[in-house]
Amino acid sequence: MIWLKRLVIGSLLCLAGLAVWLWLTMLSPWFYDRPEELPAIEQRTHQVFVYGTLRYLPVRWVVMGSSGSPEPARLHGFERQGLDLTASTGKYVDGLLLTVTPEALARLDRYEQLGIRYERVKQTLADGSSAWVYMRLPMVGQLNIPSPAQGVALLTYD
């Protein structure tokens, strides 16, 4: 019988840990500060094309607090590589079109770490409608910065 008590206590601790982690990453005032240079979110409904983890209902409920009324959608001219999109002629990415409130869009911005990890770009979908799409910002290691071997002088301080 002691094993049952340990199982119940362990399960409750795991659930509590999960709840704390979700709160910290999705709702807490820590771990993400919206960059000041980003424009304010317009107070209207928004269309958002999602193609990664946000295709799954439980993730959308945790992130946005709603389902977003998903509809199948397709984005032409891009190819999915992991959780990122790259421009690719003749390719397309299937996903979902969500209709979200300004509050839900702010929560999506936090989830995607808008201005830090992703940017939100208006794109035209296959059906002609336009929607926000989160595109990965270039990582420092992926930027095309010339090295000293390419004839760029480095500044040194004596």
Score class of each variant (00 low, 15 high):
M1K: 10
M1N: 12
L4F: 09
L7V: 11
V8G: 00
I9Y: 03
G10A: 00
S11Q: 07
A16W: 06
G17K: 03
A19T: 04
W21E: 09
L24I: 02
L24N: 00
M26Q: 15
L27W: 01
L27Y: 01
S28F: 01
P29T: 11
P29Y: 09
W30L: 00
F31M: 05
F31P: 06
R34H: 04
R34I: 01
P35R: 09
P35I: 03
P35E: 13
E37K: 04
E37L: 05
E37T: 08
L38E: 01
P39S: 10
E42Y: 05
Q43V: 13
Q43P: 04
Q43M: 15
R44V: 06
T45W: 12
V48S: 02
F49E: 00
F49M: 02
V50D: 02
T53S: 15
T53G: 12
L57N: 07
P58N: 00
V59G: 07
W61K: 01
V62C: 08
M64F: 05
G68K: 07
P70L: 10
P72M: 03
L75A: 11
L75D: 06
H76T: 12
G77I: 09
G77V: 10
G77M: 07
F78K: 07
E79I: 12
E79A: 15
Q81S: 14
L83K: 14
L83Y: 07
L85E: 11
T89C: 09
G90W: 10
G90A: 15
K91I: 02
Y92G: 08
V93L: 12
V93G: 13
D94C: 01
G95R: 08
L96F: 08
L96H: 06
L97S: 09
T99W: 10
T99I: 03
P102N: 06
E103N: 13
A104K: 11
A104F: 10
L105Y: 08
L105S: 06
A106P: 12
A106R: 15
R107G: 04
L108G: 04
D109T: 08
D109K: 10
Y111H: 12
E112T: 03
E112L: 09
E112V: 06
Q113E: 14
L114W: 14
L114G: 08
I116D: 08
I116E: 15
Y118K: 04
Y118N: 13
E119K: 14
R120P: 00
R120T: 05
Q123F: 03
L125G: 06
L125E: 03
L125C: 02
S129C: 01
S130V: 07
A131K: 09
W132G: 05
W132M: 00
V133N: 02
M135S: 08
M135W: 03
M135F: 08
R136L: 07
L137R: 12
L137A: 05
P138D: 03
P138L: 10
M139S: 13
V140Q: 14
G141M: 06
G141Y: 12
Q142F: 04
L143Q: 01
N144P: 02
I145G: 00
S147M: 11
A149S: 15
Q150C: 02
Q150E: 14
Q150L: 05
G151N: 00
V152A: 04
A153M: 10
L154C: 14
T156I: 09
Y157F: 15
Y157S: 09
